[in-house]
Design a binder for these strands. Sequence first.
DNA 1: GAGTTTGAAACT
DNA 2: CAGTTTCAAACTC
Length: 290
Amino acid sequence: MGNVLPSSVPGLYPILPQSYLAPPSLPLIRPTTTLLVQPTSLSSGYNFLSGPCFSQFHQTPCPVYPDSQPKMSPVRFSAAYWDAKSRKPCSCTKSQCLKLYCDCFANGDVCSNCKCINCYNNNEHEYERYQAIKICLDRNPEAFRPKIGSGKRGEIKGRHNKGCNCKRSGCLKNYCECYEAKIMCSSMCKCVSCRNYDESPLRQTVVSAGSMDLPGLAFYPTAKSHDECPLACLTLRVVETTCVCLLAQAEEAEKEGYTEAQAEKMILEEFGQGLTQIVQSIFKSGSLYS
DNA sequence: GAGTTTGAAACT
DNA sequence: CAGTTTCAAACTC
């Protein structure tokens, strides 16, 4: 039998949701680790919202990636983001790198080549590290999951799963986890004076200045890049992604046990929202009547 | 590089 | 669960 996570209850071992087996959130799993695995429960945050629930005005319900955008998917983007993060050396001094303040620990990595002081996040302090991991998981079972949705069940691709709480940065500095991940704030966020949304003039300035490159930014397309024909933005990719959103609504309706009529309503509302976004982008581009 | 600001995490 | 404190990263000078 391999390593088993420590438990405060004799004879019982911590059970991790299946999602912990998926990278990059691998704080615990070693090649010889034995785990009791339970299926991820539906209640653990299946957060596709129905159309009307997207209350924040700057929220666009589902990302659509026009063909002119970089091909990097939100999934790949998310992974790249966390990979990059995990490679960054930490500088912790007080946390022993055993709290989520430490990026290495939070990413499930042991520290290496870091500038930290009194570090316990290494193989020499395996027991302390396991204890710390257990404490974190007791407090929040999702603590080691990626913060940016990878599109797995319960997550929306390219969206911060918890949302940010920024108050002073306008969500346009790297203090903001959404901005740092190069995604827009969403209805999950509780930020104040947010400017990290699609139509924010300030954000567009920041983006065009090149201080924020693109991967996660592509939401519903602006037709400016398709001047020849206003409907040219209805690419296969746009259609496909819209279908994914509609399917998500159907799934949500099924999960909630809604009637067929209610499900139809949800799907139609979602479709209406998507259509509105597309039409708005065409009108905003001015290409329809110019 | 020191000091300040910021917001997430931890604590009460 | 809200308010406060701690912490480390981002930022400014």
